[in-house]
Design a protein around this nucleic acid. Structure first.
Length: 493
DNA sequence: ATGTCC
């Protein structure tokens, strides 16, 4: 547990088990000064109310561990929704200098490579959907493949050869095959596909797992929600994003399923073996890594990018399935893609560090890229306001649309969700899934789940307050609030 | 997150 030191240096602190001290810089920003092998400080974006959860679950120790990685620059960051994860905390951002031996680490991306969110905006107002909502939810229930194991919208009749095209082309390939329109791609991070995908670095087992899951939601915290715009904040941005109060939208949260999981497993193992060869030692085996410019680093980057494209194609196929369900149940399949963005990814980006522009490998694990206004990667119609940052809340609670700021911080990153505070195991002990479903239905939220256990694990009580998390992001300058969304119906694995 | 242990 970290000692807490206020910025006025009063000795107002909690018990410490080692020398890690948390120094308050602003009401929303704290610093972990380097100790032991830390090469840079840790920077934590949090209010005092959010801090105890971070110290209790040892995720700040993980922030400090990440700060020891070779080539790391500026700081090891924690977003306000940070919580304990595999090696890196979930809600962590770390960038390494590629040309200075900087490493890439599968634990810095997570098992669900390119897990992310997209938001579709309907021309309908909430009251126009009222009478068809049950039919719509029933249609989605029948037509959105989900849960653990095989099952997906797309039958890959072309087998492994067609899977290669998914791994190279992502959403672009899905659109080429008629699943969506060109406009969708303009509103995807990387225009729908990462360029440096190398399917040869994706193992046979990963390929096998991927064959049967293209176009599926998965389980855990993944969901498809029919939502409405509850409140807008930055009116100019909300207008540009097409978000009016009462407007119906659909949020899809999904990832790269078993394929991404297998890629992570395979490359963690390869890196662990290679670390002594590269002269790298880390305080936690789960931080296994290799220089970006090494055979193991490049292999993982290629495989991770391929898995990322699988995740993008996955969300594109779910989008088209949702449009068809809207067509049948509501009479219009018009659902405009606002944006699609990952929150589990490592990317090669150029940033200015200490006055010099460098190529960095930016790991965002449970953290969302938040490009500033006028960034060249933004599509024309979004450039004035910055990149939409899509932040799903916990089940039954609000979600947010934020926008990237010019000043930004943490290499232009923001939070990715509410952030878990209770383990799945603990949630199962304290929550009854069936009762929770009844409670949500009573609150007017249609629930289409596949297991009571899955619902219990995702109970809102397992998560932080998304309003507090998002408010902290805004006050820390990471991103600004554009709109709050509330659920009408949720489809879960 | 995950064919929640090949």
């Amino acid at each position: 547990m970290a000692k807490v030191v206020r910025d006025d240096a009063r000795e107002d602190h909690v018990t410490t088990t080692h020398a890690l001290s948390l120094v308050q810089e602003t009401p929303y920003r704290w610093r972990l000064d380097p100790i032991d092998a830390m090469r840079v400080p840790g920077v934590v974006f949090a209010t005092e109310a959010l801090l105890p959860a971070m110290t209790d679950d040892r995720s700040l120790d993980q922030v400090a561990n990440v700060a020891t990685l070779p080539g790391i620059v500026t700081a090891s960051y924690a977003m306000p929704d940070v919580h304990w994860g595999y090696g890196f905390p979930i809600g962590g951002v770390a960038a390494t200098d590629v040309d200075a031996g900087g490493v890439i680490s599968p634990g810095g991306v997570g098992f669900d490579i390119s897990c992310g969110v997209r938001l579709l905006v309907s021309p309908l107002q909430r009251d126009e959907l009222q009478h068809q909502l049950t039919a719509l939810m029933d249609d989605l229930d029948r037509n959105i493949p989900r849960g653990a194991g095989p099952g997906g919208i797309w039958r890959l009749v072309g087998g492994l050869a067609e899977l290669e095209e998914v791994l190279r082309g992502g959403s672009r390939f899905a659109v080429e095959r008629g699943h969506g329109v060109a406009r969708d791609l303009e509103h995807c991070e990387d225009r729908g596909a990462v360029d440096d995908a190398d399917p040869r670095q994706v193992s046979a087992r990963a390929h096998q797992r991927g064959l049967s899951q293209v176009g599926s939601l998965g389980s855990g915290n993944h969901f498809l929600e029919v939502q409405y715009v509850d409140e807008t904040y930055d009116q100019a941005a909300a207008d540009a994003f097409g978000l009016r109060v009462g407007q119906v939208c659909v949020m899809i949260h999904s990832g790269s399923r078993g394929l991404g999981h297998q890629v992570c497993t395979d490359h963690l193992k390869a890196m662990l073996t290679a670390m002594p060869r590269h002269g790298i030692s880390v305080p936690d085996k789960q931080l296994a890594c290799a220089p970006v410019q090494s055979p193991e680093g490049r292999a993982y980057l290629g495989a991770m990018s391929a898995a990322a494209n699988y995740g993008r194609a996955n969300r594109q196929l779910l989008t088209e399935a949702t449009r068809r369900a809207f067509e049948r149940a509501v009479g219009t399949g018009e659902l405009d893609l606002l944006y699609d963005v990952s929150h589990n990814l490592a990317k090669l980006e150029r940033h200015t560090v200490d006055g010099r522009e460098r190529q960095l490998c930016v790991h965002r694990k449970g953290a969302t890229r938040a490009l500033p206004p006028h960034h060249p990667e933004l599509p024309c119609d979004l450039t004035e306001h910055g990149q939409p940052v899509l932040v799903p809340g916990s089940m039954g609670t609000a979600s947010y649309v934020l926008a990237g700021n010019v000043e930004g911080d943490a290499f232009h990153s923001a939070c990715h969700g509410a952030g878990r505070v209770m383990s799945r195991h603990a949630a199962l002990r304290s929550v009854d899934g069936r009762a929770l479903k009844q409670q949500l239905e009573k609150a007017g939220i249609a629930v289409r789940g596949t297991s009571a256990r899955g619902l219990a694990e995702e109970a809102p009580a397992s998560y932080k307050d998304v309003n507090e998390v998002v408010g902290t992001c805004e006050r820390a300058g990471l991103a600004r609030r554009v709109a709050r969304l509330r659920p009408l119906g949720v489809v879960k694995g």
